[in-house]
Amino acid sequence: MRLLVLGGTEFVGRAVVEAAVARGWWVTVLNRGRNTVTQTGVVSLRGDRLAADGLAALDGLSFDAVVDTWSGEPSAVAAAASTVSATSYAYVSSRSVYAWPAPAGAAESAPLVDPSDDVADYAGIKRAGELAAVEHFGDRALLVRAGLILGPYENVGRLPWWLRRVARGGDVLAPGPASLPLQYVDARDLAEWTLDALAAGLGGPVNLVSPSGHATMSTLLTACVTATGADARLRWAPPRVILDAGVEPWTDLPVWLPPGEMHDAMHTSDVSRALGTGLRCRPVEETVADTWAWLRSIGGVAPQRPDRPPVGLDPDAEAAILTELR
């Protein structure tokens, strides 16, 4: 397979490149050159997708498949989809394209948001990106509607924050209930499934996350304790205690959403199509351990996407809640 990855140096794009190289595919990446492509044998081209001639480096080239991880202006997706010579096009979209709040158990047929070109409207620009891919590739456009993505190279900071917090040791505020089911996908599992789907000629939208309950808050945080080897004690707090303290779910305490409408929308989607087309999800313990190993290899500080705010709970706020629990 001749694969073009638009991006290819960070998180999901990097995982896709590594997986394709491991398969022996011919891989070309196009990006702005802010980061270095580390894989041997990958053809690295330069181009700013927001510039008028940003795709000029692809002139005269053709590919079996394209993977596009762009999350900015949808005009860049439209430009690439209309310009690149390829058989199929995988656009890494988001489950955010579903009208909020998505009902529990929502499948790919759930109501969608309206498309937008306003970069402040993440859901809208992702939907516009989907439509751009479909306009030019039709049923050969694969819409990878990822949910929460974790794993090595994460540049949003969710799992890295938990790992660093647990590594500090002591009492750690653990948002309950401990059995709360989670739904996420390791970036490497997303990459493998996407490449398999492209090779098989699969198209259309697919919710790409694990089955709900593949991990729980307890198994995730326990895996953090095990991986770091820290002298950390998980102190479980009921959701109401956390919410009454003014803590913001998802941002102050990454990954966690209290039981109810928000949790149902993010952690209970129907993934029958993904599973039926070969999605395999590695154990949460492997995702956590590999992310910790990666963090340690880069000095413990994960890269941060400039378009995403930092996440994590203020230590003083955590200490106040822990005192109340005691």
Rank of each mutant, 00 (worst) to 15 (best):
G129S: 15
V92R: 06
A319W: 01
T277S: 04
A132S: 15
A317T: 15
T38Q: 14
D53C: 00
P211R: 03
L234S: 12
R282C: 12
A78K: 00
P115K: 05
G13R: 01
A110Y: 01
R233I: 10
R46Q: 13
L50R: 15
V288L: 01
A19L: 04
G260T: 02
A56G: 06
T194E: 06
L295G: 10
D290R: 15
A317H: 14
V84G: 08
A56V: 08
V247I: 13
L325N: 09
A227M: 11
D121N: 14
L148C: 00
D196V: 02
Y91A: 10
P177G: 00
T222M: 08
F63Q: 01
D114E: 14
P239Q: 12
G300E: 11
D59H: 08
R34Q: 14
R240Q: 14
R280S: 15
G33Y: 12
A65M: 09
N207L: 06
G105D: 10
V29M: 10
G138S: 13
M217C: 06
W25H: 15
V43T: 15
P239F: 12
R308I: 14
A197E: 07
E286Q: 14
H263F: 01
T83F: 13
D118H: 10
R46H: 10
V43P: 00
P303N: 11
R158D: 03
L61D: 03
M1N: 04
W256A: 02
V21Q: 08
R305Q: 12
P160C: 07
A232I: 12
V271H: 00
R164H: 08
T291R: 05
A237I: 10
G312E: 10
V42T: 09
P306N: 05
W26Q: 14
N207H: 03
A19R: 09
D314Y: 06
R168F: 00
V185Q: 00
M1E: 07
W26T: 14
H263K: 04
V5H: 07
L220M: 13
A20H: 04
T83E: 07
L142Y: 02
S272W: 01
A317G: 15
D118P: 02
M262Y: 06
L45C: 13
E261Q: 07
P306L: 03
V185F: 02
L182P: 00
P254I: 09
G213Q: 04
G8F: 02
A237N: 11
S212V: 05
R164M: 04
S269N: 13
T251Y: 04
P181F: 03
H263P: 01
P254C: 03
Y122S: 09
R240H: 14
V66P: 07
W292E: 08
E18A: 15
A245Q: 09
L202Y: 01
Q39Y: 04
T228W: 09
A174E: 01
G8Q: 01
F63T: 05
A293V: 13
